[in-house]
Nucleic acid binder design. Sequence first.
DNA 1: TCTAATACTGTGCACGCACACAGCCAATTT
DNA 2: AAATTGGCTGTGTGCGTGCACAGTATTAGA
Lengths: 363, 363
Amino acid sequence: MNERIGIKDIAKKAGVSKGTVDRVLHNRGNVSPIAREKVNAAMKELDYVPNVIASALASKKSWKIAVLMPDSKNDPFWNQPKAGILRAKKALRDYKVMIDFYPFRDADPDHFNSCADEILSKEYHALLISASFLKEGQKVLKKCEAKELPYIQINTFLERKSECFLSYIGQDSYASGMLAAKLLNFGVEEGASAMILHLEKGTNNAKHLVDKEKGFINFFSKNKKRKINIVKGSFGDVFDKKELHQYLKEMLEKTPNVQGVFVTTSKLFHIVPILKKLGRTDIKLVGFDLIDNNLKYLYNDKIHFLINQNPKKQGFMGIMNLFNHLVLKKEINALQLLPLDVVMKENVQYYLEDKEEEIHLVF
Amino acid sequence: MNERIGIKDIAKKAGVSKGTVDRVLHNRGNVSPIAREKVNAAMKELDYVPNVIASALASKKSWKIAVLMPDSKNDPFWNQPKAGILRAKKALRDYKVMIDFYPFRDADPDHFNSCADEILSKEYHALLISASFLKEGQKVLKKCEAKELPYIQINTFLERKSECFLSYIGQDSYASGMLAAKLLNFGVEEGASAMILHLEKGTNNAKHLVDKEKGFINFFSKNKKRKINIVKGSFGDVFDKKELHQYLKEMLEKTPNVQGVFVTTSKLFHIVPILKKLGRTDIKLVGFDLIDNNLKYLYNDKIHFLINQNPKKQGFMGIMNLFNHLVLKKEINALQLLPLDVVMKENVQYYLEDKEEEIHLVF
DNA sequence: TCTAATACTGTGCACGCACACAGCCAATTT
DNA sequence: AAATTGGCTGTGTGCGTGCACAGTATTAGA
């Protein structure tokens, strides 16, 4: 049953050799229009689907992919996308896919540039990039386009109009802001206050933070049935604990009845001990990312919700989509927004488990 | 670079032929202990990893899998596991995997039995089963074990001790009860009441409902800081709207200040219009499953949270795990609990999207 | 008309493995 | 001693496709 038909079948049907079928299949040229037409007709009639297994085995081509993302030494967050990339690499080990990492120091645009130049000086088939720097990122992508090097962006999205731009894989920042708002709205009483707090430098230059803020605020302005007072805070240097303590103290004093705080990055854990010192353990907290420091507080009920952005999956899907594009010539979606998982103590295990789960191949 | 080594390499290293290596690899017997040892040593030393591509291409075996689950005509829920199974089938099209469906009428144990008998009378390599009926389910699994037919259970878990029992893939009912409790606890004021409501017949016979209830109640009994009054309700025939209306009215009258209701199945949507008629739209609602009737109310803020159990993924993983076991001879986990996704209006899109996402192959 | 270039087509090997088969040798039986 | 058995081993073909190369038909140029 279920006899799969191969190129020799369509060759026979079309009255040509399998060599000709192969040439039609891969647009290698040197095929007469008549032959091409016969082959196409036969393929359509027999509903030919290439056998990827045999194809992969026979193919001699190898594919080189460069990865340009921040060094995980400086920010452990980047270990997760990296883990996803390595898992993808393992999944593709029987295909000739080579992956080279170019980690750049995350606060060093010059280093970012020099890494990019090194990539561009070599012969890669594609690039997986997470461009932290707005201006430099745009420049690098422009250079890629000049060299016709296709790329996929993860985590940070710089808009480009080009054939080379294949996809952005990451989160929808605006939606994540709304989600945080909805969660706080659920747990905060009518008439009370909720705070959105940026704990980063240069907040206004970071598009994703601006978007999160928009989402958060728009949720409450749309939702007119319940009145919640929204305040916005911003503090750059989380390592200056004394100043941060002072800042939060003043904010909470001048804002009446704050019942919830939304921190727009993974740095929520910094304010937990401070709130404790201020005797405000009643405040409900929402933040991002399942990093150890946050998890600790999630486990003992200090943090109520963490929104998970699937960083590992971002890396994994980045490579898998490039594979899809390069090797299997499939269309890939230009925008791939990953789920915003709502994580609590009771379901966190499912999002952490790193058991040897299935490996995902894209056909 | 990255020269992959194959059986001929280890054959050379071990000083035997590739035939002997193959026999060692697949435990085909007829290998002298000395040869076996040499081959094993060579494999270890060269860190041999089989090329699944070539292996799949060369293998002549075909695999037959039977699927025994409720008919989706009667309950559209089952369309989702089915869709997952079909996707897996597509992903495996180059491997010789055949899948036959045996849908049984969901309230008809006799039909379940006769479907099972038909499967057992044919030659299948494995079975994917969702046994709705406790007693009949156990009997059927026993028969499978007698015929040495390995199986994976999805959605409903019947405990068995047997070599044939490969895995259960589904949700952790107890954890889902706790999750629901946590969500309601977040949105319900101290001193108020929360209700757990079963809308099924024969609740006490359904293990997963009992477990959900345990999880829900234990959350509140563990959490002694905040006092919430818990009440339990149970009503069998949701289609008798008048009686259901009356039942809810009385429950809400005799229970002071009910602020949240947790319905333990996908049938939450049945009580939404009734609560509206009773003028109790303030009550916060938590239930299960992204089915259309529930989604409608999620969109217009009548339902606050839906807990998603990944029914499509259950089907997909069921097949993939059988493939893993049969074809790739990999160990698979006996218990595979899928994430309990917390779904709200703001993130529901990510769990619904049926875009042609990556297809998962297990190596 | 002949040659040479070009356009097109078919053949056959390789990819790494599974598996059938034939061959070998020692032990046992006749 | 010859025949048989059974444990063990190596050889060789085929899976469906990619691709190099050889081969044939067509056309253009002299």
